[in-house]
Amino acid sequence: MVAKNLVNISFTVNGERFNNVNVPSRQHLADYLRSQGFTGTHLGCEQGACGACTIEMDGKAVRSCLVLASQANGTNLKTVEGFDDEMMEKVKQNFLKHNAFQCGFCSPGMLMTTKEILLNKKKLTRDEIRSEISGNYCRCTGYQSIVDAIEECINEIN
């Protein structure tokens, strides 16, 4: 990427430290992460609508296409590659069980959104689950299986 303006930043991705790296000011975080090999972060629309690029920044779900890489300075990031704790392993098992992974394009964003639902410890109805995932497009499953998987995850932790 040709860029006149570079910004020097430091941050953490999945526990790995990135110190004093130069990023083009105009580059969004999803492109930067993908350029560093974190290709689990997918890009669909680059305007906030599809949710495929959703990652965790300082404990909260954000759209990585709507955050500049330079804005990640000082933050702690987690991408789908780092979803390996006990809770997320269970979530992935439930997604597999209900056939909620099909082509997999939406999956990183769906997993992140599920993670946030579980961390907020909300007990949700199926309708509420649908509205929580309304910001994540899936072109394969018809959502039914994803709602099934999330419902099972919620029941397990509550």
């Binding site: 860029a3 006149k4 303006n5 000011s25 105009r26 580059q27 969004h28 680059e46």
Partner: peptide, 10 residues
Amino acid sequence: MKAADFSYHE
């Protein structure tokens, strides 16, 4: 698409 270049001030 991608953003055009700009200077960034925090």
